[in-house]
Each structure stands twice: as structure tokens, then as C-alpha cells.
Amino acid sequence: MCKAMSNFPSRLLEGYQTFMSGRYADERDRYRQLAETGQEPHTLVISCCDSRAAPETIFDCGPGELFVVRNVANLVPPYEPDDNLHATSAALEFAVQALKIREILVMGHGRCGGIKAALDPDATPLSPGDFIGNWVKLLKPAAQQIQDSQLMTGGERQIALERISIRNSMANLRTFPCVKILEEQGKLRIHGAWFDISSGELWVMDSKTGDFFRPETAEA
């Protein structure tokens, strides 16, 4: 191995070798087609950065099927057309306007560290910039209401905000004109789901009531 590669994580190289001899070998034609014709994913998934909740793995999707945006606590900020940097908004714009995606899924998950941070007003910033603390302020109104409830345990508060944050992100999606107009025209649909890491259960949000339920296909 050349010196330039000596510090590259061996686990990643081993995984790449397995990928090339396994999945890539099996789907070589698919990858070549995607390279030549471009991507046409059917769904935009907005999910958390958490390494335990990868959408491509959970939904068993192949290359080119999902356009995935991952950030802390799977949050969507409201529409703000200014000169600030908006990574999630940029990805959303590209997915809807350029890729013409017509399905958007906001997927939260259990034991989310970002949600835990939002529920802890006394959390110590991890850096002077406190990027996480400022980011999860998007959930501040809901987090404060849950914190004030003495009838809920810590675990119940966590799950409640994990699911409320999904509805909050879905509401913020609808502040984007390109999303709102297409949804009203019946050309785009917005979905919510919550994944339980410990059990593998997928809970889907009812679009009319906002309640979460386990679809029959997800039951063991």
C-alpha cells in the first residue's frame, strides 16, 4: 500500500473491497446506467445523522432510489430566502425542483441525541459555537411544553418530542412555496415515520390525524 493511503481507515477499505466484490459486482449495470443517465430517485428522505438509522438500510433500497438529507434530529427549518447558508433547504430545493421528486419522508428515530439535547436546557455546549444547541432551538416551543409536563417520564418526553419534531418538520416543509404548491396540486406527498432502533419497528404517521401506527407490513 502506498504511503499516501497508509492513514486511511482500514475498516473503510475492507468495506469497500467487500462492496466491490459483492453489491457492486451484482449491480454493476445499474451503477453504469446511473452514471450515464443520471439519478431519478423516487423519494426524498430527511433523516437524522445517527449512524444507527440509515434510510437506505432500513428501507432496503438500492443505488439511485433515495435522495437522502441527513442532519441532527432530522429537522427542516422554515423557508427563509436570505443570504445565509441553508444546507437542508438547498437539498430540498434540488430534490423538488431539479429531480422532480414527488414523495418526501421525514423520518425520526428513537433515542435521538439531538432530541435529547433539545430537552435539556442546561446542556453544556460541545464547542464555543454551540452549533447543536442553536440548531435544535427549532424545537424550543415544543420542547418547553414537554419539559413542563410532570405527568411524563424522561423516556416518554423523549419519544413525544421525537414524534412532535417530525410533525414540526413536515409543517416547515409546507412553508416552502415549491412544496406547498405541488402538494396542493396533488403532485407531491409528504409523509412522516419514526423508527425504533432497539426493536426495528417502523411507525408511520397518519396524514389526517397525526397519530403514529405500525403498518401491517412492518409487523413481526
Rank of each mutant, 00 (worst) to 15 (best):
C2R: 14
C2I: 13
S6T: 14
S10L: 14
S10K: 15
R11K: 14
G15F: 10
Y16D: 08
Q17F: 05
Q17L: 09
F19D: 07
M20E: 15
S21C: 05
R23Q: 14
D29P: 00
Y31H: 10
Y31W: 07
L34S: 06
T37H: 04
T37C: 02
G38Y: 01
G38L: 02
G38K: 00
E40W: 07
P41T: 14
L44R: 04
S47K: 03
P55R: 07
C61N: 12
G62A: 13
E65D: 15
L66Q: 14
V68E: 14
N71D: 13
N71A: 12
L75G: 06
P77A: 15
D83K: 09
N84P: 01
H86C: 06
H86V: 10
A87N: 12
S89K: 10
E93A: 05
V96Y: 04
Q97D: 12
Q97F: 02
A98I: 06
K100D: 15
R102W: 04
E103L: 05
M107P: 01
M107Y: 05
M107S: 03
G108H: 04
G108A: 05
H109G: 06
R111Q: 14
G114K: 13
I115R: 12
A117K: 10
A118C: 11
A118N: 10
T124G: 01
S127K: 08
G129P: 03
F131G: 00
G133A: 12
G133V: 09
W135F: 10
W135G: 09
V136Q: 07
V136P: 03
L138S: 06
L139D: 05
P141I: 08
A143D: 02
I146V: 15
I146Q: 11
Q147E: 11
Q147P: 00
S149T: 01
L151H: 05
L151F: 01
G154W: 01
G155H: 08
G155W: 07
E156G: 06
R157K: 15
Q158F: 04
A160M: 11
R163A: 03
R163W: 01
R163V: 00
R163H: 03
I164W: 03
R167W: 00
N168F: 01
S169R: 04
A171K: 04
N172R: 12
L173N: 06
R174M: 15
T175E: 14
F176T: 08
K180W: 07
L182P: 01
L182S: 10
E183R: 05
E184A: 13
E184M: 07
Q185I: 07
G186S: 03
K187A: 15
L188K: 02
R189W: 00
H191N: 10
A193S: 13
A193R: 08
A193K: 08
D196R: 12
S199R: 01
W203Y: 11
M205N: 02
M205A: 09
D206K: 01
K208R: 07
T209E: 08
G210R: 02
G210P: 00
G210Y: 02
D211W: 00
R214P: 00
E216V: 04
E219S: 12
